[in-house]
């Protein structure tokens, strides 16, 4: 099992993901350059957080056309596990690998804090080692995490169990106060129909070690191990 972490110009959580996978979780991992047109021999792909291309135009809008994204789309189409974290989630939306779009946080502030999310679906490559209803404590750091989808896309997500994570309070209850960015239906993470592509705003790679304040990210990243 080998993870590949894609590096875009402006990625800034690529090293965090690499470190968490290698040092905290004991996995093989390598970087994949945005200009590459093939992924090499990796079994899972992480699109890390950051500010690819300076967030110019829209978050993720320019990264979506990076040469590597063609290979990522092919890998996803073959059922390979792909996780977009924060800016990586925004890139997956712009690339059309996941439905919907990101709006600026309703509060207009950049929110950098710990939040709680409830696991809604375990039928994905990045939640299969969690249990349904489990409350995870994860860090966020974003200015545009206000997830939006039209009524049709929203219905499609809800009816097919494709909402993976929802913001909640420490007891697992949804509320406006527990939602840091105003996202639709408190959505923090979603998947594609097959469950191999997942996008999430919280940062699991930042909480795989007690030293960093939490270990709830481990089950997210380790879910990809053995996924097929």
């Amino acid at each position: 099992m080998k993870f590949g972490v894609v590096v875009f110009p402006g990625s800034n959580c690529d090293a965090d993901a690499y470190f968490a996978l290698q040092d905290d979780l004991g996995q093989k991992v390598e970087y994949i350059w945005h200009g590459d047109t093939d992924l090499g021999k990796v079994d899972a792909v992480i699109l890390p957080g950051g500010f690819s291309y300076g967030d110019y135009l829209r978050t993720g809008a320019l990264a979506r056309f990076a040469p590597v994204m063609g290979a990522v789309a092919q890998f996803a189409a073959r059922g390979g596990p792909v996780l977009g974290i924060c800016n990586g989630f925004q890139i997956l939306l712009e690339a059309g690998l996941l439905p919907g779009a990101m709006l600026r946080n309703a509060c207009l502030q950049f929110r950098c804090e710990w939040v709680h999310v409830r696991v809604e679906s375990t039928a994905t490559a990045f939640s299969r080692r969690c249990h349904r209803g489990q409350v995870l404590r994860l860090p966020i750091a974003h200015g545009e995490g206000n997830y939006y989808a039209g009524p049709e896309a929203r219905r499609e997500l809800e009816e097919n169990g494709r909402v993976v994570l929802r913001y909640c309070d420490p007891d697992g209850r949804e509320s406006a106060a527990a939602n840091p960015n105003g996202s639709l239906a408190h959505i923090a993470g979603i998947s594609n129909a097959r469950g191999n592509v997942v996008g999430m705003m919280p940062h699991p790679e930042r909480c795989c070690s007690r030293l960093l304040g939490g270990t709830d990210g481990r089950s997210i990243l380790l879910s990809a191990v053995g996924f097929s």
């Binding site: 779009a101 939006y148 989808a149």
Partner: peptide
Amino acid sequence: RLLSNPVI
């Protein structure tokens, strides 16, 4: 294709 996002 690029300058706007038709979703929003």
